[in-house]
């Protein structure tokens, strides 16, 4: 590559596009299905139930503490497949790049995607690159879609009062790291996105799939929003115990400083699991033996109120409704 910026020609579909694809994507994603693929990639699979999902990633900054937009794009889709009970198989990668974007940065992003895909055992087998005029996008946007095959023993089941709610690790790590980086806050402390594939955690629960009612990854809108979605899906209310929610002291502190509620901040490497009470402690134990499951907790349970509210109760019995996110989170001072 003797140029260092993306130009409109890179998105024209002609020779520049082909060269870019070969130089960057074939090199990093390097698998035969991708390289063989013409208009579509082809893969073989046995009969079964498949999971299919999509997400676009528009995160700012593009490179952040603990990850980058490429890693996030792979984790996001791998995790959406994983929490659907599927073994993630194949990913697509659709890029929209602003003219003038540094090719070096694109290369780093592709490399990060490749590394994350490897780590989670998926292959990126089809892709698309569009370039838009300067000022018509903000750097780079990535869409990943994914296909996975469902664990035969897993189906979503009717959620019942008494079912326990597990979260697999500390919350709000991604949202807090991004806020810190975005606002350029002058604070030290370990703030790293939790951005990571979690399919191995779900895989470790293979033997318990009969007792797992539902799983979700609490990304945009945080754990508060994920719990509300579960409540609505279940048609039941949920009761959470604030003390049980795993949150690192520094994360708590920084959000208190900013006046932000961490329950609304994204996790990118966690799952929320609704499990039958009878096996929930065993499931918890199974998660806790994993390197990235040590902080897992049962944070509450399903109740049978007449509504689909999420209630959160604190150490002295104070109780309130935990609503879904409204609007956006901004640092507050007053």
């Amino acid at each position: 590559m003797n140029e260092d910026k993306i130009t409109l020609a890179h998105g024209s579909g002609g020779i520049s596009t082909r060269n870019l694809i070969k130089d960057i994507f074939y090199r990093h994603f390097n698998n035969q299905k991708l390289i063989d693929g013409l208009d579509s990639a082809v893969f073989e699979a046995q009969s079964g139930r498949f999971a299919f999902t999509t997400d676009s990633f528009v995160v700012k900054p593009i490179f952040f503490s603990g990850g980058d937009i490429g890693k996030l794009a792979v984790c996001g889709t791998v995790n959406d497949l994983a929490v659907a009970g599927a073994k993630p198989l194949y990913l697509s990668c659709g890029l929209i790049i602003e003219e003038g974007f540094p090719i070096g940065a694109l290369d780093r992003i592709a490399e990060s995607m490749a590394r994350t895909a490897d780590a989670s055992g998926v292959k990126i087998i089809t892709g698309d690159t569009k370039v838009v005029e300067k000022g018509c996008a903000d750097g780079i946007f990535i869409n990943t879609s994914g296909v996975g095959i469902l664990d035969k023993s897993y189906v979503t089941k009717k959620i019942m009062p008494g079912d326990d709610i597990i979260v697999t690790g500390t919350i709000a790590e991604h949202g807090t790291a991004i806020s810190r980086d975005r606002y350029g806050l002058k604070v030290d402390g370990s703030f790293m996105s939790d951005c990571a594939p979690i399919n191995h955690i779900i895989k470790a629960l293979h033997g318990y799939m009969e007792s797992i009612k539902l799983m979700k990854d609490p990304t945009r809108g945080g754990i508060a929003t994920a719990l509300n979605e579960i409540a609505e899906h279940a048609g039941k209310s949920i009761h959470i115990f604030e003390e049980n929610i795993p949150i690192r002291k520094e994360v708590q502190a920084l959000n208190e400083l900013l006046g932000i509620d961490p329950l609304y901040l994204a996790c990118e490497g966690r799952a929320v699991i609704v499990a039958d009470k009878a096996e929930s402690t065993e499931i918890l134990a199974r998660i806790r033996v994993l390197d990235d499951g040590k902080e897992a907790q049962i944070i509450g349970c399903v109740e049978d109120a007449e509504n689909t509210n999420v209630y959160i109760e604190n150490f002295f019995g104070g109780k309130r409704i935990l609503a879904s996110l409204e609007g956006n989170m901004l640092p507050r001072i007053c």
Binding site: K186, V187, K249, E250, L257
Partner: peptide, 8 residues
């Protein structure tokens, strides 16, 4: 030091 976070 604010609960473990160092701020200026």
């Amino acid at each position: 030091d604010i609960m473990g976070v160092m701020a200026s």
